[in-house]
Computed example of a mutant assay.
Amino acid sequence: MEMMPHKKSGSPADIVQQIKQKRNQLSPPKKDIQRMEMPSQTNTVGAREIMHKITEGEKHLRKGNLFSSIVALREVLNLYTKTKDIQPKDRTTLANIINEVQRKLAESPEFIDLYGKVIFRDDDFATSYDFLCQLIMIKEEEIASVLVNDGINQSLKLDHLSKKDRETAKLMVSLAERGELSMLQELVAANDGLGSLVLAFYNEAGINYRKSGNIDKAIIEYKKALSISPKDEHLHYNMARAFMEIGQKKDAETCIGQAIQLNPYFYEGLKMQKYIEQWIG
């Protein structure tokens, strides 16, 4: 069955361009800033609340929960701009920490996979806030379009499931679409059979996109499948094949290497690895 395309609400690049028309163009980041703690003797309630939210967002990012880390950073920026009871010294320290957090987010593999290269301008928190708000809005619209799509529901084979299992499967899709890796994998571990359904859904979507020539979209769907089952050598094989079709030799080599590492006796993978080595060499 052909997969229905996701609703398109504009790419992150389009959003950046729109914001640039309203504000100054994003500039290259300054040199790395060492993480600084808020001085306890001058720490106000507002500053402590912001630091708590920063810590929460960083934990999400370390776990691979991209969407939650984006939401947390948006809340940090909102608090920073609206909270008045922050002493000047604390405000400067917080600004430096927020700049560092923005760079970590933009440089994370999960963020780059979904949104590409983005540079946040230091101290331009109004632009950052606008950008994150639009990323969140677009992602929620995309998720909504996925969950109400009849073709996708049929592909997931939800009709024969109980109401509880249908809701769990849709939650898995929602987490995969958001890039909430640790939350997704915990849910899959507790519901292995449903995880297999969602895994097959994304893998088949990737195959269909590859066959239709939409390789970039195929790679995105394979990555979602890998977020459910990162140790499946067949998914890494599919990724390698997609990268080969668009001439990205190094990426193909990396993916097939991961497949062989997971299963050294993976015959089809070994054949592809040999082919890629000859291709690169």
Rank of each mutant, 00 (worst) to 15 (best):
L147P: 08
A144G: 08
Q134A: 07
L132R: 06
I19F: 03
F111Y: 15
Q25P: 00
V76E: 05
L73H: 03
E142P: 03
V101L: 00
H60W: 05
N99Y: 07
S128L: 01
K89T: 13
L79N: 14
K53S: 06
V71C: 08
T127S: 15
E58L: 13
A106I: 03
E58H: 01
S68H: 09
C133M: 07
E141C: 04
V101R: 08
Q21C: 04
T93K: 14
D32K: 11
F120T: 01
M137P: 00
S155H: 14
K59W: 07
V148C: 08
C133E: 14
S155R: 12
M137H: 11
N153R: 14
L114D: 13
K63G: 03
Q18P: 00
D130H: 07
K63V: 00
K53H: 02
R35H: 12
S108V: 06
I50M: 09
D90Y: 02
K84M: 09
Y129T: 01
I136R: 07
P39S: 04
K84G: 00
Q154D: 13
E75Y: 02
T127A: 13
V148E: 12
P28D: 05
A95S: 14
I119A: 03
Q25V: 11
E142R: 15
Q34R: 10
E49Y: 01
F67N: 09
R121Y: 00
K22Q: 15
K22W: 04
I33G: 01
A126T: 14
T44P: 09
